Simulated scan of single mutants.
Amino acid sequence: MFRGVQHINMDTKGRLAVPARQRESLLDQCAGKVVITIDTQSHCLTLYPLPEWERIEAEIQSLPALNPAVKRFQRLMLGYAADIELDGNGRALLPQSLRDYAHLEKKIVLVGQGNKLELWSEDRWLAERDAALSVEAVEELPAELLSLKL
């Protein structure tokens, strides 16, 4: 399980050092082999351990490709997916196309999402966080969330 929010830096070559907590989990789960792709609902990236991505990829490929909306989703999720392996120092090199999509520069934020991690530009993450905490967002919570017993 990936949890927490961590602010990290990316170097000028597009490499980021995965923090020790997540790196250990990735090394245990998938020997550091991950897949990074775009999030189709936000301008961020999602990082999946390879076994988790393979499960998701099979689900995506099983969808009816003749449905135009499904085809667009498949093109984005599968088309942008990049196989990445953490190097000996726990660093990952992000392809330029993915960095461009998420507007990633030096300061980025790694957000745990249970089975995956999200990568955000720091500015976009702070805006997303603030929007999610707004009174309007809290008032618009769906019934599924309102039924949770936290």
Rank of each mutant, 00 (worst) to 15 (best):
Q6F: 07
G32P: 00
A132Q: 08
D87E: 03
I108P: 01
N9E: 14
L104E: 01
L66G: 08
S134W: 03
E105W: 00
R23N: 08
L148D: 09
S42I: 00
L146I: 12
I84D: 02
I60R: 03
T12F: 10
S25L: 12
G90E: 03
R21F: 10
K149T: 14
A17I: 13
M10F: 00
D87M: 00
L45Q: 00
L104N: 02
I8E: 04
Y80K: 07
R75P: 07
L45R: 00
S25G: 09
S42Y: 13
S62R: 15
R55T: 10
A58S: 15
D123W: 00
E136M: 01
A69R: 15
D87V: 02
Q6N: 12
E57L: 08
L133R: 03
K13A: 05
R55C: 07
D100R: 12
T12M: 08
G79P: 02
D100V: 11
N115T: 15
K107H: 13
S147V: 15
I108F: 01
E105K: 08
G79R: 01
R21S: 10
Q113I: 10
D39R: 02
E59A: 15
D11Q: 06
P49A: 05
E59Y: 06
L145D: 13
R75M: 02
L148M: 15
N9L: 11
F73E: 08
L145E: 13
G90S: 02
P49G: 05
A92M: 06
C44V: 04
V135A: 14
L76A: 13
Q61I: 11
A20P: 04
L26A: 08
S25C: 05
E136W: 00
L45E: 01
L16T: 06
A131C: 05
A92H: 05
M10S: 09
L126K: 11
L146S: 10
V34N: 07
V135M: 12
M1R: 13
C30P: 02
W53F: 06
E52I: 14
A69T: 11
L93W: 01
I36M: 07
I84R: 06
A102K: 02
D87A: 02
G14A: 03
L133K: 04
L119S: 04
V34W: 05
L86C: 06
R55N: 09
V5L: 04
T37S: 05
P51A: 02
N67K: 09
V138I: 15
H7K: 14
D39A: 01
C44D: 06
R3Y: 14
H7F: 11
Y48H: 09
V70Q: 05
Y80C: 12
R21N: 12
A102G: 02
Q29K: 13
S97R: 09
